[in-house]
Amino acid sequence: MGTHHYDPTQHPEVRQGTILRYVLATVISAAAMVGAYYVAMSKPPLVSLIEELAGTLLVALLAQAALYFGLDVSRAQIWKSVSLVLTLPLFIISIGITVWAFSSLYGRTMPDPAIMSSMAM
């Protein structure tokens, strides 16, 4: 409950932020997106497209997690980090397994080869 006798300016989540962190997070995210843009524009084969886009996306998200959100294993942030680690697989599972299940469904039920190839990921 609301016992707030302490000084909010000293709270670890307040102290944690620095201008450097925010500049870095923004620059890395922006650079990753520009990189991803050029990857996509060069229209590489599907597999390398997926690999390279996923890589740049991961860089951007990691930078944001570490520098924007300030996630780490310190006492102030540990539970946010743990809950993220527990939730992220579910995020990936719910999208990934769905795609996997439907790609096989489409492969078996849709006659149009264009559809099959577009879902064959």
């Binding site: 995210s29 997106m33 990857v39 996509a40 229209k43 886009l53 951007a60 924007y68």
Partner: peptide, 22 residues
Amino acid sequence: WQFQASVWVVIYVYVYLFGGAH
């Protein structure tokens, strides 16, 4: 607000770039 940026980069890469390039 930071979370919106994270969601957006996923949308951008997945819908705009991946979807746009294949």
